[in-house]
Design a protein around this nucleic acid. Sequence first.
DNA 1: CTGAAAGCGCTAACAT
DNA 2: ATGTTAGCGCTTTCAG
Lengths: 365, 365
Amino acid sequence: MAKSKRKSVKRVKPVPGPALASATPVTIRDVARKAHVSLSSVSRVLTEHPDVSRPMQLRVLKATAALGYEPDFIAQSLRRGVTHTLGFLIGDISNPVFADVIRGAEDHARSMGYAIMLTNSEGDPELDAKYLHLFLRRRVDGIILSTAETGSPQVARALLDPTVPFVVLDRDVPPNARVSMVFGDHASGMRQATAHLIERGHTAIALISGPEHLKPARERIRGFRAAFEAAGLKPNSDFVRIGSLRPNFGRDQAVDLLRRADRPTAIIAGSNRLLTGVLEGIQQTDFVVGRDLALAGCDDVDLARLYRPPISVVIRDQYKLGQVACELIIERLANPEAPIRTVTLPTQFVARASSDFPWPPAQSN
Amino acid sequence: MAKSKRKSVKRVKPVPGPALASATPVTIRDVARKAHVSLSSVSRVLTEHPDVSRPMQLRVLKATAALGYEPDFIAQSLRRGVTHTLGFLIGDISNPVFADVIRGAEDHARSMGYAIMLTNSEGDPELDAKYLHLFLRRRVDGIILSTAETGSPQVARALLDPTVPFVVLDRDVPPNARVSMVFGDHASGMRQATAHLIERGHTAIALISGPEHLKPARERIRGFRAAFEAAGLKPNSDFVRIGSLRPNFGRDQAVDLLRRADRPTAIIAGSNRLLTGVLEGIQQTDFVVGRDLALAGCDDVDLARLYRPPISVVIRDQYKLGQVACELIIERLANPEAPIRTVTLPTQFVARASSDFPWPPAQSN
DNA sequence: CTGAAAGCGCTAACAT
DNA sequence: ATGTTAGCGCTTTCAG
């Protein structure tokens, strides 16, 4: 591609074919020539070095504008050892909450002069490791990690002695990992949700949750149990279904639960993806949310807000999650002495018609 | 960052402070030294140049493995003039269909050795232009463009004489733009949807659509009208609401339509984001989908699939959209002689309970 | 088949 | 204040 057609063509034997409108990369050299100054002067002007005379500055700027010159990022990166690029690894881009997380991270990154390279491992821990590696080889300045459901040992190892600032979102890290972290306070939100259901009269409450080795799932289970304990009750252990975050798991467990003779009167889906599955399961068994059972989920997705009846959810500020992650990275980039930090963001339960009615309902048919 | 601590330290005066576990970037030099060969030999082995002797190859590979050497992407990019990176500009990452588009693009890109740099302009045409620019400065090898609702003149100009392969998704381009394109056949799907409603007995059908300057919206409007024409009917022009893709527009228009004395008996939302707004509007006016009116939308989002009743939609293969976009770029990267191409992907209407019943309904109370 | 050396485009020490 | 020059880490001619 960049065959360069400046004086350095000495040894390049360009293919005789037509140039086919190839780009005309203006280099700093062209600017220097045009402004009749040295390369370094151009560089100084453009990097706003203090030691530049007014007239020089003007000549350079004029030439720069005239030629439409813009420094080559790659060359700058190589020379400066800094790419102004952040890697953002998403374990599951199909999860709608990530749109907000990405927006939050990117808005902040852009405002600080960073671009984000996004990759999606779609739940595959090997891809996690592969992409992490790729980020490093591409010399990103920092990495935001929201890894797959299953952790990768290689990723874990990389966190022990990171070569660039890392921030891990809502995941466990090895004991002495030297990385920043952002967590949602999922336990608190789930505790509120569970307490709300208990208060409305439910005791047969089911929780369908992701695996316990996943920090958010574990926290939610903890919050669920805490609410029971606070009420002096014990959850029916048959109703706590711990498995996976995949919608199908939610569907299957919901079906199984609802077909029991002693079926639960309320179900909590422990993630937004599980909620879609749970809804499928409920529909499959012909029960009706808000009449036959109460339902609550996590994250304020369209589906929850617009469902009839609207579904109660534990919400969190996803945009902020991305933003904070980015901040934690960039603050360490700006100041290498800055310590790693852990930030916990609040969650909050929002009661809606799917659960906000007394149980048993006034007229149960 | 990369202060380098090899023999080249001649003029670099390293800060006396502690090295703070800085990365140990193994370079090709280290490998050459360890293998007792020249730099170029290492390079040849690793780039799989044919002219390398067996023993040499083995020595180099051994040294490479021993040191855990990996070529620096940035340096390779600068030298080769190729970054193996594709820019993907998304105009609206909040749209859930993009998760699939991204997956499609990225899976293919990865399989071909490319990474994707994703940016989100969130509907802002100025950001579109800015990001496009950024991509170019970062020397991406190709660009996938799914721009904001409103076009940017700067972006349009860039398409006239592109310096790298472009592919534009579902957007108009200037008359002699030299770019590949991927379109959805939105007219066809919308025509099917409208015909289906007419067939079920509706004539008072409303369409809430994005602006006509947006290609997909325009196509959908065309399909809508075509279906009426084919049935020998004329759509009520009061029922065709052309404005924006924002959910609020959908909500407001739905409310306005449903409050009319001569309200429509069926509504089609011309995009998945509009559908969320339309549902809000319907709920706000206390009408019930599937009883008081029929409803159809676009794209097979969770909301449509899991709503009660399930909502009929015009579907398309979003994953494939991303994949094809990527293919179109990479095929031109692999073969610079490859022509620009335009691919149209099919859409299909899927009837569900929200519309798949005769009108007027058997028992209308 | 191998090594020496030029140089991608830029920045920053060094030397005026 | 400005110019000269040495590289960043790599690939690729060119010479042997």
